[in-house]
Simulated scan of single mutants.
Amino acid sequence: MMTLDRIYHAAFTLKDAVRKTDLILAPALSNENKVYLKTENLQMTGSFKVRGAYYKISRLSDEEKSRGIIACSAGNHAQGVALAASKNNIPSLICMPDGAPISKVEATKSFGADVCLVSDTYDDAYEKAVELQKEKGYTFIHPFDDPDVIAGQGTIGLEILEQLDDVDAVVVPVGGGGLISGVAAAIKELKPSCKIYGVQAAGAPSMYESIRAHEKKALETVDTFADGIAVKVPGDNTYELVNKYVDEMITVTEDEIAAAILALMEKQKLVAEGAGAVPVAAVMFGKIPRKNKKIVCVVSGGNIDVNILNRVITRGLIMSGRRTTLTIALLDKPGQLVGVSTVISRCGGNVVAVHHDNGDPNMAINSCFLRVVMETRDSRQAEMIQRQLAEAGFQLV
């Protein structure tokens, strides 16, 4: 089903249509391995998805093109299909979950597609797209479970080997599995010794659970802000290819993803969406069982909604120990706040918010809770501040 010839043909077709993204060294992301980033977040449309969509559309017959195109997507495939369709003068309709980031919806429209918003998740958008395809006769462009789409994504694997021929491991985000299927097929056929690791959000582990169970598993629900990989059921083709080529599946938590997004912004000056940051999260938090190796993380996309970016950064600061909230039980008398702030200042912390609560019915009449939000360098400094507050006689709740 998937051959190197097919992937090489995709690379030839795409050479003037997509960007060959840079592979950059990221020494600040790991002390245990030499980490490189494959920057698909800097791809046209901000995501790798344009590769598979463009190659698939290039392979359509004139009759298939004449019927128009329909697709379903949480956002990135939508933009890839919209761009490829417009370049080929084909009308396109994209079904998207109504929870998709507004930025992705508007970007899809800007590339010339019509958008149909569907209540709930990607899988509901998929069902709507299939329904409309049967009703109207559109040509359906699947976001991941299609050989041509997989071959297009596999061109990333060819580029990685060309850019770093002595790579030891490649870490790839996994939703439905189209990206990792193509990348793994290309790399394993050319360099079998290279390890391939797939990473999913812990709240949407459909491929992870399927590989563990040795059969395709469907999740009842998914719960992750990494909307690009929030898929309930892996594809038939992608499940088989992952089973054949991928060495291990891994999951990361929401907090770990947020910390990775923050690290990419601060240390590499790169903006990644949740799905794009999961490989980096796996490396940062020791989920990859390799040491002193050259590891490539595929940063699959950068289309993060600015409306949630602030929340993600805040969560990342908390996860990395740089934003800490303390609740302290105090006698409600003058001078207490001065005592607390003196300890924090002496330890080098910076208070950014204070909330005084003396209305809790469970506390004594002459007591209060003081909630202090502070900026710290790291977890060790936050722990030091807590110790010194306790030593000064303050009761931490």
Rank of each mutant, 00 (worst) to 15 (best):
I7R: 03
H9F: 08
L14P: 11
D22K: 14
L23Y: 01
N31D: 15
L37K: 02
E40R: 04
N41C: 13
G52C: 11
R59Q: 15
K65G: 07
S66D: 11
G68W: 06
A71V: 02
G75H: 02
N76L: 02
H77P: 09
A78Y: 05
L83C: 07
P91F: 13
S92C: 12
L93N: 11
M96Q: 09
P97F: 09
P101Y: 10
I102L: 15
A107H: 03
T108I: 04
F111I: 00
G112S: 07
T121E: 08
E131H: 13
E135W: 00
E135G: 01
T139P: 03
I141S: 01
D148H: 12
A151N: 01
G152P: 00
I156C: 12
I156M: 07
I156A: 11
L158I: 12
E159V: 07
I160C: 01
Q163N: 03
L164F: 07
V171R: 07
P173W: 05
S181T: 04
K188N: 05
E189C: 13
K191C: 08
K191G: 11
Q200R: 09
A201I: 04
A204M: 05
S206I: 01
A213D: 01
K216A: 04
A218H: 12
V222K: 10
F225L: 14
D227H: 09
D227F: 04
K232L: 12
K232A: 07
P234F: 14
Y239E: 01
K244A: 03
M249S: 03
I250S: 02
A260N: 01
L262Q: 02
M265L: 14
A272W: 13
V278T: 15
A281R: 08
A282L: 11
K294L: 05
V299F: 14
D305R: 07
I313P: 04
I313T: 09
G316L: 12
L317K: 15
G321C: 10
R323D: 02
I328G: 09
A329R: 15
D332G: 10
K333L: 06
P334K: 05
G335A: 04
L337E: 06
C347M: 15
V354F: 02
D357V: 10
G359W: 00
P361A: 04
A364W: 12
M374E: 07
S379M: 14
A382F: 12
V397C: 00
V397D: 03
